[in-house]
Each structure stands twice: as structure tokens, then as C-alpha cells.
Amino acid sequence: MALIRHKKMARVRRVLRLTVMFYAATLALVLGSNWFWPRDTAPAPAAQIICLGGAVSRGVLAEDSLMRAERCGGLLLAGHGERVILTGDGAGTLMADHLRAMGIEEARITVEPESRSTLQNALFTARITQTDAPVIVVTDAYHLLRSWVSFRLMGFDHVHLASSEAMVDRTGPMFREVSAIWFNALRLLIYTGTFWVEPAVRDALLA
């Protein structure tokens, strides 16, 4: 019995070590993106710029959403895209208002107002635009890697990335991002395995 307990404890310790290693590696990627991703480098031009909505507080764009909108508007005005898709429940509509105030023509703005997660950003945007043409995805630097994976998994063939200007100097969002990466992986497994479920219900799995 003692030998069996010893083997079980050894397996538990191995699992814990692997978990810590994977978490640390993911955190290093997130921190590295936040600190070192070039914020003043413009991507190659693309037909569509996709602006991912962030937080909204009492009907007002939070700083992360505002900086993303500023970056998207700047890229449009500089000729790096023809149109912009602003995706996110609440944030999408408010970011569109901000772009109009920057002088972006209404004809160049599309709002996707339903998505509540990065996976839904990608899924719902894929339904309203071409996925085989190059797109530029704009979000905070620490969020770029998860965004790239999400858009690629939802069928986008050519995903270029552009960071908003701000660098997050708080640790909270970094740790939440690491958790979100692994939580997204779990949700994708469930989503993939429930192909027989009604589409609206499957969509909700990614919220």
C-alpha cells in the first residue's frame, strides 16, 4: 500500500511540475509580447482592419478600447487598410463612434456588436468578411498571440498583427491572459466536439 501511495504521489508531483512549467512558459510569452512587441511598426496594407473591443465602463470606452480604436483609425488614415471592422459587445459601437469623430467615413466602418470573447470576435467576424484575404488585427500587445491563434482557427488565412500604442503596466491583465489562453483551449475542444449541437448553442460555448 505504501508503494502504491508513493507512486500516486510521484505522478501528482509530475503533473504539478508540468502544470507550473506550462503556466510559466505561457506567462513568459505574454509578458514578452507586452514589453517587446513593436508599437510603432505598421503592418503591410490589407483590405480589412479588425479592431478588437476591450472594456467598457458605464457606456464609455475604457483606456484599452480607446487606444485600440485610435490605432485602428490611425492605420486607416495612413492608408494601411480600406475598411475597419469593430468587433465586440458594447465596445464595437462605441469604437465606431470614436472613429467617426476621427474623420473616418461611415462607408468604411462595419460594426460586429455581438461577440463577448476573442474566439467570438474571430468567429463572428469570419461570417461578415472574406477569410482568404489579408487582414490586420489590432489589440493590446499582450493579447496579440491569442488573437492570432483565434483568427487562424476560425479560418483566416493571412493574419497580420498591430499593437495598440499603450503598454499595460499592471500584472493583473497578464495573469488573466495566461488563464484565458488555457481556458480558450478547453472551450475550443468542447466546441469542436459538439458539431451536432444547434449553431446558436455552439456559438454560446465560445462566449
Rank of each mutant, 00 (worst) to 15 (best):
A62L: 13
R68F: 12
S147P: 07
T118D: 02
I128V: 13
T129I: 04
R146V: 07
S150M: 06
G79M: 09
M102Y: 06
Q120H: 02
R116M: 06
R71P: 01
A62R: 08
A62E: 14
G73A: 10
A91D: 06
E63Y: 10
M154L: 04
A126Q: 02
G92C: 12
E114K: 12
V138E: 06
T87E: 05
L76Y: 13
D64Y: 05
L145S: 12
P113T: 10
S147W: 00
G74C: 04
A96V: 05
L76H: 10
N121R: 02
M95G: 02
I128K: 04
R68K: 01
M95E: 07
R108N: 05
S147N: 04
V135L: 08
S147G: 14
L76V: 05
L86G: 10
L153A: 12
I85N: 00
S65P: 06
A107G: 09
S65E: 11
T93V: 14
R146I: 14
A126E: 03
G155H: 04
V135M: 09
E105M: 07
L145A: 14
G155R: 07
E106P: 00
G90K: 11
L123G: 00
V84S: 04
L145N: 12
V137L: 10
R152S: 08
T118L: 08
D64E: 13
T110V: 12
V84G: 05
S117L: 02
S65N: 12
T110F: 06
G79I: 13
T118Y: 02
R71L: 05
A133D: 05
E82W: 00
V135F: 08
T87W: 04
G81R: 10
P113R: 02
H98V: 09
D132C: 05
E70H: 15
M154K: 01
E105G: 11
L76A: 09
G90Y: 03
L77W: 00
V135I: 15
P134M: 03
E112R: 03
T110E: 02
Y142H: 14
R152E: 15
L119H: 01
E63G: 00
L75Y: 11
N121L: 03
A122G: 04
Y142T: 01
A107P: 00
Q130P: 00
P134D: 04
D64G: 06
L144E: 13
L119M: 14
F156I: 09
F156M: 11
H80N: 11
W148D: 09
F151H: 09
F156T: 10
P134I: 08
I109K: 03
G73M: 08
A101D: 15
R68E: 00
L94M: 09
T93Q: 15
H143R: 15
R68Y: 09
S147I: 07
A107V: 11
E112P: 02
M67N: 12
S65L: 09
L153V: 08
Q120K: 02
A133V: 14
L86I: 06
R100N: 06
A96Q: 11
E106S: 13
W148I: 01
P113F: 02
A62K: 07
E114L: 14
A62W: 00
L86F: 11
L86Y: 10
V137K: 13
A122Y: 01
D64C: 08
H98S: 13
R83G: 01
T87F: 10
T139Q: 10
